[in-house]
């Protein structure tokens, strides 16, 4: 007889082990120089994942990662708003302005991008943007990257901004294609 309890537990452990390092990396950058603990942010994100795990476990890695990312972003934004309210001593006013792209749409788009597609896209960047972004993705700070290329720190910032813009432009049309395929195959 299968041991469902421990099977579920092990699956969830594996799920956490798979996604936790990259989430924690993001969380550390978001929480830098704040009173918010990156571990808490990640922990809360996985707590939110528990009631959803029945669905999450059957989705693609990219879809699960996109869900976790949205959830963590929401937790983080909550924290920012709470802090803002506290520091100003006044209630948070609801935003009347609509977002250009809804959080759900953002998540759904990125859920369709595989790591393979990303690797192909990054190969197509201009060499200096590609190399700068790679160094950044390895965890290098701006000044280290600046030193590597012997350029001012400000230049690194604009290279990374450009690299991200190009990556989005390369990846998002594929999302549209993936969506259409999804639509025709269903």
């Amino acid at each position: 007889m299968s041991n469902l309890f421990n099977r579920d537990r092990r699956r969830f452990e594996a799920f956490i082990r798979q996604h936790r390092p990259s989430l924690l990396g993001l969380a550390r950058r978001l929480c830098a120089r704040s009173s918010l603990e990156p571990e808490d942010l990640v922990q809360e994100t996985f707590e939110r994942a528990m009631p959803e795990f029945a669905h999450l476990k059957d989705r693609t890695d990219s879809a699960a990662a996109a869900w976790l990312c949205t959830t963590m972003t929401n937790r983080f934004l909550d924290y920012c708003r709470r802090q803002r309210t506290e520091s100003r001593g006044m209630p948070h006013l609801a935003l009347v302005q609509d977002l250009a792209v809804s959080p759900e749409e953002t998540q759904e788009n990125w859920a369709l991008v595989s790591t393979d597609a990303f690797q192909k896209a990054i190969e197509r960047l201009k060499p200096h943007l590609r190399d700068a972004y790679r160094l950044h993705a390895e965890g290098k700070r701006y000044n280290a990257i600046a030193e590597h290329f012997n350029v001012p720190v400000g230049t690194v910032g604009s290279w990374l901004t450009l690299a991200r813009r190009d990556l989005k432009e390369l990846l998002l049309p594929q999302v549209a294609v993936a969506r259409e395929q999804g639509a025709t195959s269903s």
């Binding site: 989430l23 924690l24 993001l26 792209v101 953002t106 790591t115 390895e138 989005k168």
Partner: peptide, 26 residues
């Protein structure tokens, strides 16, 4: 807010794809 959502999705994907250590050894 929208920019942050988009950017974090991209960065997470980069971290996963490049095996990277935007994620830092833990």
């Amino acid at each position: 807010e929208a920019g942050l959502r988009e950017l974090l999705q991209l960065e997470l994907l980069a971290s996963r794809a490049l095996g990277g250590s935007a994620s830092v050894a833990e």
